[in-house]
Design a protein around this nucleic acid. Structure first.
Lengths: 165, 165
DNA sequence: TTAAATGCAAAGGGTTTGCACCGGA
DNA sequence: TCCGGTGCAAACCCTTTGCATTTAA
């Protein structure tokens, strides 16, 4: 049952946005300041890593990758910063198939996730693709689902193919 | 950020099925035997609790509730049994909004879950309600999503109303 | 009889917390 | 200067594992 799993995403539609020229964090710094909070080297490291991770990392991984840049990084700082960033609306998290928190910087477009139970790969799903369902939930129940937190587990095309073959 | 949360479900359509007359576990016992596995008092307790929990409990809660019946219950037995039951297809788990495993006995009809981020309540969503989306995912990507593992987080009708008011 | 299941106790992994010190603004 | 952040270390919680013992079949 212990299924090997590492986050990371095969972007559904490759060149969706491409990296912005200006540093990801410049606006974040401003937002922090606007809230009376501070811009620190540690926070910069964390944001750099988040941005470089194609936006998908578990908390533990984030700690590890930050350590690669700054060996002095500590978990508490990372997790506390993630809390702050989430409050600011800069990042979001959902729970991977193994239940661990998985973070991503808020993308241009909101998206959910598909996780293949068999091969462990994952994909993004655009809002458009799930909008009909979200709409139905909204209409029938008044429930406003949060796409960014959505993670569907199942079997991907390849793995379904293999079992079939 | 630490959000108070206790699983438990407001069934969407109240009297959907009503409890079966025969003990939930009689067929399970047979299935265990059929696989060369054993029917034990502990397993019976666990199944009774699962069935009495409206089918939704975290692992930790299950342990606790089993202890109420049999104080000698140990976590290892509970978790190991859950693994077995999941392999047998008797129970399923998904991850609640806080990432903990949440188990339910496989219902007559597969269903997913809605969790309100604000009030913490949750609801079941029938397959029908999400079928259009699943269908779209299947067609566009070949991805077969597992409804039983689906848990959408968002804001329920009541809580949206409050914020609005 | 004998493999499966249990109980115990300890480890494990990710995440959180308390507290003294540090350092952006 | 001063409050927000950091680092450390320990605590926490849920879950898993190893191993000797029990027990269903």
């Amino acid at each position: 049952m212990a299924r090997p799993y590492t986050p990371g995403v095969d972007r559904a539609h490759p060149a969706a946005g491409s990296a912005p020229a200006d540093p990801v964090w410049s606006s974040v710094r401003d937002r922090l300041h606007a809230s009376g909070l501070r811009w620190t080297p540690q926070r910069r490291t964390i944001l750099d890593v988040l941005a470089a991770s194609d936006g998908h990392v578990t908390g533990a991984e984030l700690v590890e990758r930050c350590r690669a840049i700054d060996p002095a990084t500590t978990p508490s700082t990372v997790y506390r910063t993630l809390d702050v960033l989430e409050d600011l609306g800069v990042v979001r998290h959902h729970h991977g198939p193994d239940g661990r928190e998985e973070f991503h910087v808020l993308p241009e477009a909101e998206h959910g996730h598909l996780h293949c139970r068999v091969c462990g790969r994952s994909w993004e799903v655009g809002a458009a693709e799930v909008e009909p369902m979200l709409d139905a939930l909204r209409r029938h129940r008044g429930f406003e689902a949060d796409i960014s937190h959505m993670a569907l587990v199942g079997r991907c095309a390849d793995c379904r193919e293999i079992r079939r073959g």
